[in-house]
Design a binder for these strands. Structure first.
Length: 284
DNA sequence: CAAATATCCTGATAGC
DNA sequence: TGCTATCAGGATATTT
C-alpha cells in the first residue's frame, strides 16, 4: 500500500532513469489503468514524443512534467493505489517489465522500459495538460502535502476541529492533508499517543503540535528506511528491493502483540470497513 | 451538507 | 489436496 514514503522512494529511484529522456511509445494493457482521458489515442498523442523535464511527488502521487519542443505541455500523474509497483528494464532487465499485471509501459529513447505493475488495479495514470498552474488540475483538491508543507498545522487545524469525525479518518482524508494512508495513520497516532477515534475538537493546542510533530517524524523516518514492506512484500522499490520501515512499526498489523511502550496488547478495531491498530493504554 | 456506505479488484490465506 | 469464502485497502460514487 504505497503511501507518501513509498512514493518518495519510487521518485528517487525513477528520477535518474527518466529525467531528460524522450517518450517514444506508451502501452496500456488494461483499460482501467489510464483514467480521466477521452480515449487512449488522445492520451498517446499527448505524451508520445515529449521530453521528461522534471519529476516530483505530491501526497501519494508521482508527477512527471513533460515538454514538447522545449515548451512545458503537461504532466503525467501516477497513483500506485493498493498494489502498484514500478519496474525498469534498465535496472532489473527486460523480463522484469514483461510480467503478469504489467498494465502500463513507457518506452524511452535510450531503450529503457518502465512498467507499472498493478494486480488489484486500484492504481491509475492520467495526463493533465498544463494550464498555467504548476499543480496538475487532478491534484488541486488535495490538502497540503504531509511533509512538503512547511506549516500544515495552521492549515488543517481549523478544518479538523470543525468536523465531528475521528482523527484517524481525518488523517486519511487527502483533501485535508495529503500522503497519509491507513498504515502510517496508525503509526503516527501511536507516536502522538492519541486514540484514533478522538475528535480533534477535543484536542489541546499541545496535542495538535504533538500530532504535527509525529506526522513529520514518522514519515521522514520511513523515507530514510525506503518505505514499509509488509508480510506480503507487496511494496518494493523500482529495483525490486524491499524497505525496512516495517521493522519500526509499533501498532499497524500488530494485533494481539505487546505494546512496545507499555506491554498491553495492541488491539484492532474495524470501523467504516477499515482497520485501526492501537494501544488502549498509551493512546488516549 | 456532512457522514456513512458501496464499489472497484485479485492474491493470499483460512477453513472445510 | 483442493475447493470456496473472506479479507485487504484508496479514492470515488452513491445513499442516508
Amino acid at each position: 500500500m504505497p503511501e507518501l514514503p513509498e512514493v518518495e522512494t519510487l521518485l528517487q529511484g525513477l528520477s535518474p532513469l527518466v529525467l531528460g529522456r524522450r517518450i517514444e511509445r506508451v502501452e496500456a494493457l488494461r483499460d482501467r489503468t489510464v483514467r480521466k482521458i477521452a480515449s487512449f489515442e488522445d492520451f498517446e498523442a499527448s505524451v508520445v514524443s515529449t521530453q521528461v523535464v522534471a519529476l516530483r511527488r505530491y501526497a501519494k502521487h508521482l508527477i512527471v512534467d513533460l515538454a514538447r519542443n522545449h515548451e512545458f505541455i503537461g504532466h503525467l500523474i501516477l497513483h500506485m493505489g493498493m498494489s502498484g509497483q514500478l519496474r525498469s528494464s534498465g535496472l532489473t532487465g527486460e523480463e522484469s517489465v514483461y510480467v503478469r499485471h504489467s498494465n502500463f509501459r513507457v518506452h524511452l529513447d535510450d531503450g529503457t522500459i518502465v512498467a507499472f505493475i498493478d494486480p488489484r488495479t486500484f492504481g491509475w495514470i492520467a495526463f493533465d495538460s498544463y494550464d498555467g498552474d504548476p499543480m496538475p488540475i487532478s491534484l488541486r483538491r488535495l490538502g497540503p502535502d504531509a511533509i512538503l508543507s512547511s506549516d500544515p498545522l495552521a492549515l488543517i487545524k481549523a478544518r479538523a476541529t470543525s468536523s465531528s469525525i475521528g482523527i484517524k479518518w481525518q488523517l486519511l482524508d487527502q483533501a485535508l492533508i495529503g500522503g497519509i494512508g491507513n498504515m502510517y495513520g496508525d503509526e503516527i497516532l501511536f507516536d502522538a499517543a492519541i486514540a484514533p477515534f478522538r475528535t480533534p475538537s477535543t484536542f489541546s493546542e499541545e496535542e495538535f503540535i504533538t500530532l504535527i510533530t509525529s506526522i513529520r517524524k514518522i514519515l521522514t523516518r520511513a523515507i530514510e528506511l525506503r518505505g514499509s514492506s509488509l508480510f506480503d512484500r507487496t511494496y518494493r522499490d523500482i529495483a525490486g528491493e524491499i524497505g525496512a520501515a516495517q521493522k519500526f512499526h509499533m501498532a499497524y498489523a500488530r494485533e494481539g502483540e505487546p505494546c512496545l511502550r507499555c506491554g498491553d496488547q495492541i488491539v484492532r478495531v474495524v470501523s467504516k470497513g477499515r482497520s485501526s491498530f492501537f494501544c488502549r493504554i498509551c493512546q488516549i
